[in-house]
């Protein structure tokens, strides 16, 4: 995966969240984004998902440039899988319907085929027994795995995940990370915001440190962890790696 960003600026009112960010990465398999709270990780991911429009700047992903017009973005979003921190499953639909609805309505897959594909996915991720349950009847870990299945079902070009385990009880974190790891091994391209440093080290081949309106460090996870010239990066890792 190729990711080229230049002059990317995003403001909320007077608050500049991303300030002329430049980035160039090639052959990314999985990119992990870390950084302090409020630093702009979610904002960057949302721009890459086509959900947020920057004030300025250009974004190229693989062989296409993002045009920040609704008409373009809607088509673009169909090719991108997005996973939210709070799962965001539709509460009135069963697990299975959550997966098939976008397949059928957005991607025009015939209902029977969508169902078959969704069931196969659920089967693969050990979720088959929950296919006909509504989200309210599922654990956080199950909900997040179903949300990931929904994002994967559309066969996206890449998968964006915003702190997929942050809302989970610790006992459910592993099952979700295992699933992401499995996708990673199958060559699914990933961009992931997470505070799970152990997982980041294992699954990421590139890492970005976002804070104070820009990229404070980038490289392989080792390089970023060891990037101690910047005091903000150093302090952050001292805090998160303390326990």
């Amino acid at each position: 995966m190729r990711l080229e960003i230049s002059g990317l600026t995003k403001r909320f009112g007077d608050h500049v969240v991303l300030d002329r960010v430049d980035l160039s990465m090639r052959d990314v398999k999985s990119l992990v984004i870390v950084g302090p709270s409020g630093g702009g990780k979610t904002t960057l991911l949302r721009i890459l998902a086509g959900l947020e429009r920057p004030e300025a700047g250009r974004v190229h992903i693989n062989d296409h440039e993002l045009h920040f017009r609704e008409e373009y973005l809607r088509e673009y979003r169909k090719r991108v899988g997005m996973v939210f921190q709070a799962y965001n499953l539709f509460p009135h639909l069963t697990a299975l319907e959550n997966i098939t609805l976008p397949l059928v309505r957005v991607h025009g897959v015939p209902a029977a085929k969508a169902r078959e594909e969704a069931l196969a996915l659920l089967e693969r991720f050990d979720l088959a027994e929950h296919a006909y349950k509504k989200p309210a009847a599922l654990s956080g870990g199950q909900k997040q795995r179903i949300a990931i299945s929904r994002a994967v079902a559309i066969k996206p070009e890449f998968l964006l995940l915003d702190e997929p385990t942050s809302a989970l009880d610790p006992e459910y974190t592993a099952e979700v990370l295992d699933l992401i790891e499995e996708l990673h091994e199958e060559e699914m391209r990933l961009m992931l915001v997470t505070h799970e440093m152990g997982f980041a080290k294992m699954a990421a081949d590139r890492m970005l440190f976002i804070g104070d309106g820009g990229i404070l460090a980038q490289g392989t996870p080792e390089e970023v962890f060891e990037h101690r010239d910047d005091v903000r990066v150093r302090q952050f890792f001292e805090k998160v790696l303390k326990y």
Binding site: L51, E75, R77, M82, F84, N88, I154
Partner: peptide, 8 residues
Amino acid sequence: ETARSLGF
């Protein structure tokens, strides 16, 4: 927003 991100 989820619906939007799915392309609805």
